[in-house]
Design a protein around this nucleic acid. Structure first.
Length: 183
DNA sequence: CGCCTTTGACCGGCGC
DNA sequence: GCGCCGGTCAAAGGCG
């Protein structure tokens, strides 16, 4: 609708995300971009690099990384040990995106498998799963009540395959990402 | 005809 | 122990 997107620049409140989604999340965008190699030598350019490679966000004017949760690969239902960290955190990324559309076409095929109403939020949260065989990457999309122009996309896991849909404006978006991360 | 969305039920974790 | 809450399943219907 309008095009005055300016409030998205980080800084201001240092240490706190502009739009706290969950207390679990940590705002750490610059860090991600700094060492995109990470410690784990998984694949090539680390989580974010992968993320960026697979994310093309059309119709969006601003993209902001809210969080990254670097952890081991997923440990699905490891109910073996009990007293040991049951809170298994899979690698997760949350993106805040200025967009009028909820479904951001990032080039992958997603199948919706659920939708839930979120408390303190008049918009529901949608759950998607990558339909590629053997790739169980999940993402959830949520809109903020406070500012319905903002869509929060949370990715969980990493794609084990290539992007399926070619996009052209990807570089443009990527460029924006880097620009904002420079702050 | 195959893939995807919708939607209510179900389930496990967690707080009280 | 119970109830709430977030996440997932699965049947049924829709659409290209």
């Amino acid at each position: 609708m309008e095009n005055n997107y300016q409030m998205f620049l980080p800084c201001s409140s240092s240490g706190k995300s502009v739009y706290p989604v969950t207390s679990n999340y940590v705002t750490n965008s610059s860090n991600i971009f700094s060492h995109h190699g990470d410690h784990s030598s998984s694949s090539s350019s680390g989580l974010l690099g992968l993320m960026m490679k697979q994310n093309i966000l059309p119709k969006t004017d601003t993209v902001r990384i809210i969080s990254h949760n670097g952890s081991e690969s997923e440990g699905k239902k490891s109910s073996t040990k009990k007293g040991e960290k049951k809170t298994i955190k899979k690698p997760r990324f949350a993106f805040q995106t200025r967009s009028q559309i909820d479904i951001l076409d990032d080039g992958y095929r997603w199948r919706k498998y659920g939708q839930k109403a979120v408390k303190n939020n008049k918009f529901p949260r949608s759950y998607y799963r990558c339909t590629h065989q053997g790739c169980n990457v999940k993402k959830q999309i949520q809109r903020l009540t406070k500012d319905e122009g903002i869509v929060v996309t949370t990715y969980e896991g990493m794609h084990t395959h290539r992007i399926e849909k070619p996009t052209d404006n990807f570089e443009h978006i990527l460029n924006q990402l880097q620009i904002y991360s420079a702050f």
